[in-house]
Design a protein around this nucleic acid. Structure first.
Lengths: 227, 227
DNA sequence: CTATGTGAATCGATTCACAGCC
DNA sequence: GGCTGTGAATCGATTCACATAG
């Protein structure tokens, strides 16, 4: 059912949702495929194909109703209900993530913060008190936590990931620059900050190489210009 | 020349580099396609195709020489020389990014930190002193800064991005959850933290849907299990 | 007349299978 | 024997073009 959504489409759902919410907040009640496409450097046809996978709720001559679209996309992402998340690792990055407002706004709630460093356990951390990581299984079961954010040093990442798995976590958002080895039934999404920066550097180089041949126009573009 | 590298391949270069460096540090002198593939959930054939784009320096019966591979990948990414980066925005996230060691390790050096909030200007910030954002054009030109990390609130992002463009920045790593509108000659890579979390949630849902049908084995996997 | 939904065509990326080299 | 490099085949995603609905 939602499993039939192509991978490429799935990766765009979040973008459509964000844009639809933005337009709704600006007072629009409907949005055309053309308009969604422009925001991310896609084509209108591509957007319509994607939408068709979610069921057909576009009105020819009008577009998609923002509210309907938002509700539908949230249902697919599973963020129509608030989901609990555990944060592991209280370094600089962990601190920033713990206080990041964006997660709450989009249906995720950090319900507990852990660290394996006993020096940090018991300390206040935003609105949380840092807990010993051995409490993880108990808390995850008690509070139905299925997702975890892993913000520990690379050297500790694999070990902590295994503790997360044993605690029953089903998905790990991994900020450590290592590839985690986990059982097949656990999902991992890697956010490698320096990889993103490398991709940016490469995109800049490629663009310059291109513009050596064809002299540039002056158009404005939007969306990831780096692929 | 490097422009002929397919998009999909380009996105894997950083991963190969990371893995090659890790294996080298563990004492390996060569690495086989099979081994690189396993680390990220790819196939060996795919890795070999990718490598072929970088020029043929694999040895049949042996594999790829780690040092050679690392040097080549760094050259393509442009991180064989250290590149200067400006950081704009000194909130929680900016603070974490400023002190993030991973950037330095991979050839990027944050040479200046800016904020538009005059309360913050002049304050110490890691090893940097926060500068007024109006100094940006001067500093970028003086220090040949072509890349910037944008870690300001969503409401300020577009405005600051335009200042970056006017200052001569060619690439923006954007942490604000908005799609920036920039001239075509400027590259943008978006890192949307809540989008990543949404993708993780979706991946978990999809995996469960699958496992309702086919009962699971006990294999271990690596690499992004979320596409 | 405007904008969706969709088959058909195109494009690109992955997988297969094997010849050639160490 | 082991592993690369690569054409051929397959698979998936994007683009095109148009019939259809409001």
């Amino acid at each position: 059912m939602i499993g039939s959504i192509p991978k490429a489409t799935a990766q765009r759902i979040s973008l459509y949702l964000r844009q639809a919410e933005m337009l709704r907040d600006q007072g629009q009640t409907t949005v055309a495929s053309e308009q969604l496409a422009a925001a991310f450097g896609l084509t209108a046809a591509q957007v319509r194909k994607d939408m068709a996978h979610f069921g057909q709720f576009g009105r020819p001559g009008v577009g998609y109703r923002c509210e309907e679209l938002i509700a539908q996309l949230r249902r697919i992402l599973g963020t129509d209900k608030v989901r609990s998340v555990a944060l592991v690792g209280c370094g600089n990055l962990g601190r920033a993530l713990a206080s990041y407002q964006g997660f709450e706004k989009r249906g995720f709630r950090i319900v507990a913060v852990f660290d394996s460093d006993l020096q940090k356990v018991g300390k206040q951390f935003g609105r949380h008190i840092v807990q010993d990581i051995v409490k993880l299984p108990f808390v995850c079961r008690r509070d139905s936590v299925h997702l975890a954010i892993l913000a520990v040093p690379a050297s500790a990442a694999q070990d902590v990931a295994e503790q997360l798995v044993r605690a029953g976590i089903q998905g790990i958002l991994n900020f450590a620059p290592v590839s985690l080895e986990v059982p097949a039934e656990v999902s991992v999404v890697n956010v490698a900050l320096s990889v993103e920066l490398e991709q940016l550097g490469l995109a800049v180089r490629l663009k310059q190489e291109l513009q050596h041949s064809k002299p540039a126009g002056d158009e404005r573009s939007r969306g990831p210009t780096a692929g």
